[in-house]
Design a protein around this nucleic acid. Structure first.
Length: 424
RNA sequence: GGAGAGAUGGCUGAGUGGCCGAAAGCAACGGUUUGCUAAACCGUCGUAAUGUUUAAGCAUUACCGAGGGUUCGAAUCCCUCUCUCUCCGCCA
């Protein structure tokens, strides 16, 4: 979230930023609420100071066995006034909090103002070993390939859980596991500490990274336990350091971890429902960094290199795009997406999203660091990116590496993980 | 699921109604001493909000797991919740 002071001092910019992010949010009540809050605080403070001094006096009088009845009576009424002020203050602060929690993060000055994904800007692209993918009539799409080789059983997944919950089978299950292991090994080799987080989190954790309160309808919830299935391991990984004060030497702190991800995808029914393109459950290896505020944009670029490493080794065609304000997420200050090429869909598919959240999540989750032992704690900056999500990678990989006879060649870097060189 | 114990500052840990925002120890930081290391000694050493000045500061208030209550006054008494630990049971 943004600090209350920042919103106070940059109100117009906050309103503009909210509009640039295509967010409809009326924050016109803020200035009044803010002013009233401060007035009540001052009033309450003064009365409490009075109560404290008179109470001490009462203690003295009682010790000296003197009468303090009228002072006690006076303080009783002061206490009532304090209570009513505190009650109103609590109500106003709740209203303010509800507002602040819904204000999106400010985008970085380098982010281009734009309405939607169509205006996103391509930064660079790279052709993999599979070349520029000329159209081939014999090419089968990833769904046909899965059927042909028994890699995924979408029907049985739907029977067991519902559509969007794939059942990986045979070499498909093995390939999925190979990808995840490959990603984790690469990432740990580049300085990320490996973790495996809980796949469910509590409300506080969801609020810390910004999923709540705004995106409740996108989450699976276990109502009896007040737990949520994570939509991304960004949530548990960021909350590792909730309420912590890190030392400066610990930064940058880099973490990678696998989790299954669960998304209700409410509101997107009927879009991309085929195969792997949009799932309710998918697998992802996440990259996460806690960094010095002044380093965060450099760290974002370094994170792009980490993701590129994976795509390059897999030999897939990919491109990096910089999101315009209208397509940048609620919590993010700046986001780059990675997309891999699907030769059958003839489309770029998002497979990673790398964001700098600056101190937006750190403030919500209270993640701080100290520059040295006597320094005042400051909020860290948090970044995360997928490295990588498997489902779209699986699409690109199967479609790109298929041969004319329908068999699929396994990229070299994966063979030690799969234990086979080809499928079919 | 059953029974019990607990939650205090970076850590250990005292504190059961009034100079307690909190003893003491450890750690950390600054300094003195010192051939080096070590030790000893002295000092500093929580967070946040509000006000004021705005560089630093100063003042007030709040915070002893969270939220309520009693009281002139709560770390301390009462209620609710959360979490942790131990034992038993069950189970991957």
């Amino acid at each position: 979230m943004l600090s209350i002071q920042f919103v106070r001092e940059n109100f117009d910019a906050v309103v503009r930023n909210t509009a640039n992010k295509n967010t409809t949010l009326d924050i016109s009540a803020f200035p009044t609420l803010d002013a009233e809050r401060r007035e009540l605080i001052t009033k309450g403070q003064d009365l409490k100071a009075l109560r404290n001094t008179v109470s001490e006096e009462i203690a003295r009088l009682k010790k000296a066995k003197e009468n303090a009845d009228d002072k006690i009576a006076e303080m009783r009424s002061v206490g009532d006034t304090i209570k009513s002020i505190d009650d109103r203050l609590r109500a106003i602060e709740e209203e303010l909090d509800n507002l602040l929690l819904l204000i999106p993060n400010m985008t970085h000055e380098s982010v281009v103002v734009g309405k939607s994904a169509e205006e996103n800007i391509e930064i660079r692209r790279k052709d993999g070993v599979i070349g520029n993918q000329p159209d081939k009539a014999w090419r089968k799409d990833h769904i046909e390939l899965c059927k042909l080789h028994g890699l995924v059983d979408f029907e049985r997944g739907a029977k067991i859980a519902g559509s969007g919950f794939p059942l990986y089978t045979g070499k498909g299950a093995r390939l999925e596991r190979a990808l995840l292991n490959f990603f984790l090994d690469q990432n740990t080799g580049r300085g990320y500490d490996e973790t495996m987080p809980p796949f469910v989190v509590n409300t506080t954790s969801m609020r810390g990274t910004g999923q709540l309160p705004k995106f409740a309808e996108d989450l699976y919830r276990c109502a009896d336990d007040d737990l949520y299935l994570i939509p991304t391991s960004e949530v548990p990984l960021t909350n590792i350091h909730r309420d912590d004060i890190l030392s400066a030497e610990e930064l940058p702190k880099k973490i990678t971890g696998y989790s299954a991800c669960f998304r209700r995808e409410a509101g997107s029914y009927g879009k991309d429902t085929r195969g792997f393109l949009r799932l309710h459950q998918f697998n992802k290896v996440e990259l996460l960094k806690f960094v010095h505020p002044e380093d965060s944009y450099n760290e974002l670029e370094l994170m792009l290199n980490d993701v590129e490493n994976l795509l390059t080794l897999l030999g897939l065609n990919y491109r990096i795009i910089s999101l315009v304000t209208g397509d940048t997420g609620f919590s993010s200050a700046k986001t780059y997406d990675f997309e891999v090429w699907s030769p059958c869909e003839q489309k770029w598919l998002e497979c990673s999203s790398c964001s700098n959240f600056e101190d937006f999540q750190a403030r919500r989750a209270n993640i701080r660091f100290k520059r040295d032992a006597n320094a005042k704690p400051e909020f860290v900056h948090t970044l995360n990116g997928s490295g990588l999500a498997t489902s779209r990678i699986m699409v690109a990989l199967l479609e790109s590496y298929q041969q004319e006879d329908g068999s699929i060649v396994i990229p070299d870097v994966l063979r030690s993980y799969t234990g086979f060189d080809q499928i079919g």
